[in-house]
Amino acid sequence: MTQLNKQWLLKQRPVGMVSPDNFELVQSPMPSPDLDAGQVLIKTLMLGFDPAMRGWLEDVRSYLPPVAIGEPMRASGVGQVIASRNAALPEGALVQGLLNWQAYSIGDPAGMIPPRILPEGVTPGIALSVFGTTSLTAYFGLLDVGQPKSGDTVLVSGAAGATGSVVAQIARLKGCRVIGIAGGAEKCAWLTDTCKLDGVIDYKSENIDARLTELCPDDVDVFFDNVGGDTLEAGISHMADFGRIVLCGAISQYNEETPQPGPNNLMILVARRIRMQGFIVIDYLDRAEEAFADLANWVMGGDIAWREDIQEGFENIPATLQRLFDGRNQGKQMLKLADPQ
């Protein structure tokens, strides 16, 4: 067995745009799990990348502690158990969890997010994409926080991303009229032709406010926002009375050296009695099987489309994170390190 563990550690906190220079590639001793206590040794096969990872680099109070300087970067992943005395996590099993940017990790069933065995037939790519935390975020954020009703108009920003595309399609399946906001003709065409949205706004070539006036003459009942900034402000202006705004992310703001002020139209929330609420998917992990059951039915029925953007190579891990913030990713961003044995 290899005696060294490759890791990407956080070297310095980013100021502005995150870059590979914020991380350091090292070789560390192989982790030693307490096999008698049920811990297992996991070899990383594939890593997932999400915009939320940028927030974990900030030294501020949040729903998870910040990644410390000198620690491996936190990340979801799929791996294979290679050492175990735990019958529930046997050697050879494929598992999903927080594996971080490293070749090997310890899986602890008593941890905050314990490793979970992949269902038979589910590949690492599917586990991290359509059956991953981004889809759980979409499911609970839309249905529990947004509470759409059949006939509602639902607006989704970041609609071509891993979370936004699933939000938009669940809304469609629930009988809603769905408008998406995305960047670039190719992404917008995918949303219209494959995901079957009712309308799409290309923020790179169109004015969001003007297009919302055209596409949503009766205003928006539910706005699922992944972008923040000017997009959030435009969406607020077009909300219906008693509308619901779901705050999932603000990818337009994550790499700003100085946070953008605003929105400047928050009094609309008062006048139109709008509810605007943030949420975090870890609050719903005890209900994950509920979401997986519905997602599995929709996926097997061909009702939800998704895309996987898979890079390769341990040396390319930091650069793959950066792809999320310059718009190069096409769907769920992942990186493959190895095949199952």
Rank of each mutant, 00 (worst) to 15 (best):
T2N: 12
T2K: 10
N5S: 02
L10A: 01
K11F: 13
K11I: 07
R13A: 04
S19L: 02
P20E: 09
D21T: 14
F23D: 11
E24M: 13
L25Q: 14
V26H: 04
Q27A: 14
P29H: 08
P31L: 13
G38V: 13
I42M: 02
K43L: 00
M46N: 09
M46H: 12
L47I: 08
G55S: 09
E58V: 14
V60A: 13
L64K: 05
P66T: 04
A68L: 10
E71S: 14
P72K: 08
M73T: 12
V78C: 03
Q80L: 05
A83Y: 00
S84M: 06
S84E: 06
L99G: 04
N100Q: 10
W101F: 15
W101A: 07
S105N: 10
I117E: 04
L118W: 07
E120H: 11
T123V: 12
V130N: 10
V130Q: 11
T134K: 02
S135I: 02
S135R: 04
F140T: 08
D144T: 13
Q147H: 12
G151Q: 11
G151F: 10
L155A: 08
A160M: 00
A162W: 05
T163S: 09
S165T: 04
Q169L: 03
Q169A: 07
R172M: 03
R172L: 10
G175H: 09
R177C: 10
G183D: 06
G184T: 05
G184N: 08
K187S: 03
K187N: 01
A189E: 13
A189G: 01
T192P: 00
C195K: 00
V200Q: 01
I201F: 02
N207G: 03
A210F: 05
L212P: 05
F223Y: 15
F224Y: 15
N226K: 06
T231F: 05
L232Q: 05
H238D: 09
D241I: 05
F242N: 04
L247Q: 15
E257L: 12
T258M: 07
T258R: 09
P261L: 03
G262V: 08
G262P: 13
N264M: 10
N265F: 09
M267G: 00
L269M: 14
L269H: 07
A271L: 12
R275H: 07
M276E: 07
M276G: 06
D283P: 02
D286R: 11
A288C: 01
E289T: 14
D294T: 11
W298N: 11
I304N: 08
A305L: 00
R307N: 11
E312D: 14
T320S: 13
R323V: 00
R323S: 13
L324V: 11
G327D: 05
L335H: 02
L337R: 08
A338T: 03
